[in-house]
Nucleic acid binder design. Structure first.
Lengths: 251, 251
DNA sequence: CTCAATTTGTTCGTATGTATG
DNA sequence: ACATACATACGAACAAATTGA
């Protein structure tokens, strides 16, 4: 590698061994997605991009060839490279921030249940509550128009599961849970972190190993503080969006 | 590439051109981080990993060499590879879900203000409110023990900025905003999505181009529905954590 | 119409990285 | 550790198409 290339590297070196042309490609893809360049626009010239990213001509080309393969842009000799397609309109799987809006949209979803052996209950955190005596473990994939958008690993307290076993294996667990009259939910909370796809998640969501994901962990407990439900749900990173009202609008 | 390797690839092919040994390394790193293997534990054998990831032995070694370079594990001929260091304890920069807990922790933070030319106000969405007449644009980086954890681009309505210009250039804008008595905040909301670092963000946060990030967009408006503040804040993905109470616990 | 500037397309040689068996 | 194949990345030079003066 030349000195010039080295110079532009900082301490991200270690992580940043992702091929340069892929890095460049994603930045360009993002600019198109974010409307920096609209459909019909001419994007920056090879030379400009060369300088901006401090890479060789051929490397920029390689990136643009990728986008061209995706049908996003088209290059014309002597004229430039033009955006010919907008990207992703069906984005955003809304992640809920309150119980009702969490349940409502998934009430009628039909998860595709995956075969699963029992799995030890994930460690509960201080705050979560006290564990139930036994749990049933379920795994499923949720799809929307054929595309998977969520991979769920769910533990349900055995005595809860027993009240509607068929329901739990054909519908979204949280929806079922919310409908069982016999149980009184005292608390439900959710933690969301940015993660990256492990082998399982990559397979079930059809994304690359290590692709960015949002990992939600939802815990529901009853009046006694007993944890009834623990759901770990992985979403592809580019689907998820969270809306949070910090100070709510009045009327 | 051999047939064997090809076989294990699905449609993620396109994205998954990231070198295999890097993919393997991150998965292993993650397992250690998540406690799948604790300090002192022997991790899976080369042979097991070979089969799990369907790569050649040398490729697994390459991944393990990386971790060894990071001081995470150590291999012993004839014995196996052992975890010798836990990873990341100071994780989690809590992202707030209500106004008070958003403000409180950053009240005393001292942002490092970056030079910046004026920038057009980002497009407001339907829901956001009506724009003010003019905005002041500020950029800053927030650090914690030397490490940057947030890169902020902020627009503040000019008439608000004018009430405490010095404050705004030395303290976190939201904190200042919340203290100005003359203005009545009617609404504040925040949107969080999973993104990836562009050139700017990568530079200021010291992470790799395209590394996963959390992108928060916070909008504050006054009684008249005029937008006083628009903050776009980028966090490194592995710092951010959101806690959401869906059904709050009572006393 | 010609000329120069701009911009993409193509090719060569070289070096290093990745991955297999 | 070795031999092999292919991918990534650089720089540089030149070709070909387009545009506008």
């Amino acid at each position: 590698m030349t000195n010039r290339a080295r110079k532009s590297m900082t301490r991200q070196d270690a992580d940043s061994r992702v091929p340069r042309y892929l890095q460049v490609a994603s930045v360009l893809r993002r600019r198109i997605r974010d409307g920096h360049w609209a459909v019909g626009d001419k994007i920056a010239t090879l030379e400009e991009l060369e300088h901006e990213f401090d890479v060789a001509r051929v490397t920029v080309r390689q990136a643009i060839d990728l986008l061209q393969g995706e049908g996003l842009v088209k290059s014309f000799q002597g004229r430039g490279t033009f955006v010919i397609k907008a990207v992703q309109s069906n984005r955003w799987m809304q992640l809920a921030t309150d119980w009702e809006s969490l349940i409502a949209p998934i009430r009628d979803h039909v998860p595709q249940v995956l075969p699963s052996e029992p799995r030890p209950v994930p460690r509960l955190e201080e705050d979560d509550g006290t564990p139930a005596e036994a749990y049933v473990f379920l795994r499923s994939v949720q799809k929307r128009s054929g595309k998977p958008y969520a991979y769920a690993r769910v533990h349900i307290a055995k005595h809860v599961y027993a009240q509607a076993p068929k329901q739990f294996s054909t519908r979204v667990a949280l929806a079922v849970l919310s409908e069982i009259k016999e149980i009184a939910i005292q608390r439900a909370h959710q933690t969301v972190v940015v993660g990256s796809a492990d082998i399982e998640a990559a397979r079930h969501l059809g994304i690359a190993l290590n692709a960015p994901t949002a990992e939600a962990r939802c815990v529901v407990s009853d009046k006694g503080g007993v944890v009834l439900y623990i759901g770990e749900i992985t979403y592809p990173g580019d689907y998820v969006r969270l809306n949070i009202e910090l100070i709510a609008q009045e009327g």
